[in-house]
Design a protein around this nucleic acid. Structure first.
Length: 332
DNA sequence: GACTCGTGGTT
DNA sequence: TAACCAAGAGT
């Protein structure tokens, strides 16, 4: 009898699994749920290479979910600075505190799904990887592998329902966590978005997309809208070897993060004016749905509520990358 | 379903 | 180099 997709893939995973800091190698006990959850949240829309140093820093500073739950939110936000999608950090604290109150992470996908910051993907991933529960784990890798394996021509996001149904069909009752990670390893190393390495693929013989002749065209996606260019201004206010920093509003762009005072470019398309200062230069920064050209200007008087932050400790301020760039420009 | 929400690496 | 892309969630 021919091997099933999951058998073939798990056999491949046993031989080729990537060794990652948050992962147990095949055949060894599952990692602590805390580490699985933390890594999965960090990995949302974020590359493995970007996550590694943050995962190391977080687990060293906060070794348990209880430790993280006891941390001031401000410290967690600053530690997250540079990783992006800052609502993840806000929800990380909320979730840690909820779990600490519960006593432990719940083990079912349904209960996990109710925790802040855990959507369909992350709830399924934690249930499968940390608790060895059968769960259908669907991320962008799985979508791509399944769309090709079954030659699903319907464009995303409409195809999600069909993709999930096929993923459910091939998810095994045992080792669902390894199966999920195998699908993601396959998607990131072999069944890549562009130029898939079909000659190395363990599933090549049964891949309908490959048989159809052009697997790279799958999954079909709707064209993206062009990103507009917004312009804004930010002020570098320096006094006695310190700079004036503010904290941004709790939600929205870079919400809850320390920042330079600015003209409100994020809330509107254009800034709201403000005092003229000595021009220090322009910072270009790309966000998900627009590009920003930020004019950094020197000013002398504090603006709004904020704090004087010592320049020799600026690295610890937790500035998101946009403002870290602006600071670099001002100090150059 | 359509938008918002970061960043850095790859092609 | 501009475009594309990455272990998505919340509204």
């Amino acid at each position: 009898m021919a091997a099933t997709v999951s058998e073939t893939l798990l056999d491949w995973y046993d031989r080729h699994a990537r060794d990652l800091p948050w992962r147990a190698l095949p055949g060894t006990p599952a990692p602590e749920p805390y580490r699985v959850w933390l890594s999965e949240v960090m990995l949302q829309q974020t590359t493995v290479a970007a996550v590694k140093p943050y995962f190391a820093a977080f687990t060293k500073r906060w070794p348990t979910v209880e430790a993280l739950a006891a941390a001031p939110e401000e410290d967690v936000m600053a530690a997250w600075a540079g990783l992006g999608y800052y609502s993840r950090a806000r929800n990380l604290v909320k979730c840690a505190r909820a779990v600490a109150d519960m006593g432990a992470f719940p083990s079912s996908e349904k209960e996990l799904r109710h925790l802040p910051g855990l959507g369909d993907y992350t709830a399924a991933a934690v249930a499968a990887i940390a608790f060895d529960r059968r769960a259908v784990v669907v991320d962008a890798n799985v979508e791509r592998v399944v769309a090709r394996l079954f030659a699903i021509d319907e464009p995303l996001p409409g195809a999600r329902k069909a993709i999930r149904a096929e993923a459910d069909m091939i998810t095994p009752d045992e080792r669902a966590g390894d199966f999920a990670q195998a699908m993601m390893d396959l998607g990131s190393s072999i069944c890549t978005a562009r130029d898939p390495k079909c000659l190395l693929c363990p599933l090549a013989d049964e891949c309908e997309g490959r048989m159809a002749g052009d697997p790279a065209r799958l999954p079909v996606k709707a064209p993206k809208k062009a990103k507009p260019l917004r312009k804004g201004r930010a002020w570098w206010i320096e006094r006695d070897d310190a700079v004036w920093l503010v904290r941004r509003e709790g939600t929205g762009m870079l919400g809850g993060m320390r920042a330079l005072p600015d003209d409100g470019w994020s809330a509107r398309g254009e800034g709201e004016g403000g005092p003229d200062g000595e021009a220090l230069g322009l910072v270009r920064h790309g966000f998900t749905h627009f590009d920003l050209e930020l004019s950094v200007e020197r000013h002398d008087a504090p603006m709004g509520e904020g704090e004087w932050w010592p320049l020799d400790k600026l690295d610890e301020a937790g500035l998101p990358t946009l403002f870290a760039k602006a600071a670099r420009l001002a100090l150059a």
